[in-house]
Amino acid sequence: MTSATYHAPASIAEAVGLLSSDPAARIIAGGTDLIVQARAGRVKPGAYVDIKRISAAIGIRSFEGGFAIGAATPCTALLEHAALCAAWPGMVEAANLIGSVQVRNRATMGGNLCNASPAADSVPALIAAGATCLVAGPSGERVIPVTDIPSAPGRTSLAQGEFVVEIRLPAQPSGGSDAYLRAIPRTEMDIAVVGAGVSLVMDGGVCKSARVGLGAVAPTALLVEAAAAALIGTTLDDNALDAMGEAVSAACKPIDDKRGTASYRTHTAAVLARRAALIARDRAGAK
């Protein structure tokens, strides 16, 4: 039985070099998905490239009025960043619904995104927030929307040698906030049956802009522009929320599986999006 090698590069260039030279190499940050999958025999990495020693991949910093979060930053670290929690409370909550506290002390949003599970909790919230990623690779660096990373369950659009270095959140405008809710049969330590993230900006009681992200209702997390459009220009009255719910349900393309039925997912996505929109509105108004 062959055993995998382990590398802990200190620079982006070194990591790209290792990834480019070995097609069987896999990025490891917290390892909370990858190690479990390897132990179960579902993946067989030839090498682990640990990015936790790359300074750009660790920590939270201010960036262009918003934030840049190193892809290998553990989820619980987000809770300790007061400005980030104030600006994007829904996104921080979403990242801190993953697994258990012990898991989140290791698990990262970068890993949650690149594991490409359609049920990843942080991804609909990042989509709603309009987050982007800094991707490094053999041909240099590029910035792409979070929405473009997952391409199918367990698959990403990243080319060989590429990896996500950091996740960038835009500046939160005045009157803006966000919220994320998920449905699970338990209270924690579970995988979303449905997830819904809503980000919006309120001005004088009217919704100026909005983004709605959904998880676990399609092969990849969705940005539902029609749902956002149903909110923009309204006071989030019942008619607007009903219209948003209809747009959310219409966008769902779920499957029946052991975690929930397609009809339950379609129904509950609308319920959660509606509730999340109201929480985000209340948070925005409290500012």
């Binding site: 049969p185 338990r186 209270t187 924690e188 330590m189 995988i191 052991k258 975690r259």
Partner: peptide, 29 residues
């Protein structure tokens, strides 16, 4: 009563052979 139960796939294989998808209550439940 609420969440535990064996789920078999079409081939008759147990589809939730782990504590993630075989949901015993957690303390916060």
């Amino acid at each position: 009563a609420l969440n535990e139960g064996y789920v078999f796939n079409a081939k008759g294989q147990l589809d939730n052979a782990g504590f993630l998808d075989y949901r015993i209550p957690v303390a916060s439940d």
